[in-house]
Amino acid sequence: MEPVLAVLVGLLVAAAVYLMLARSFLLYLFGLILVSNAANLVIFAAGGLTPGAPPLIETGALAPAGPVANALPQALVLTAIVIGFGLFAFALVLAFRAMTELGTIESDEMRIAEPPEAGR
């Protein structure tokens, strides 16, 4: 499974970089979503992929009976997904506000905070 995930991560990052080089802030955000999913997959793959039982312990036992999946990377990925979800929700609202207030989300045209100097 790991090689497949590695290739997938590579593909996601490649697509993400392509999108993030676009001038539109919206495409940039889509690229970021892809690359953050790639990061999540990296954590998941780095934690070791164990096909099999969920890490649950029988009542009364002190340790699981057989090999179980590593729960920690899953917890990390879940946390990262939740945080990423919140950040992107905010970023999308921001892109929307930028579109309505500034009339553009092309990064080259967003020069209100940093106005171009005269003569250029």
Partner: peptide, 18 residues
Amino acid sequence: AQIDGAVKYVALNLVSTV
């Protein structure tokens, strides 16, 4: 100006996060 600045702030800080 705040929205304009925030777009740049958000964009680059999210990269750092990833």
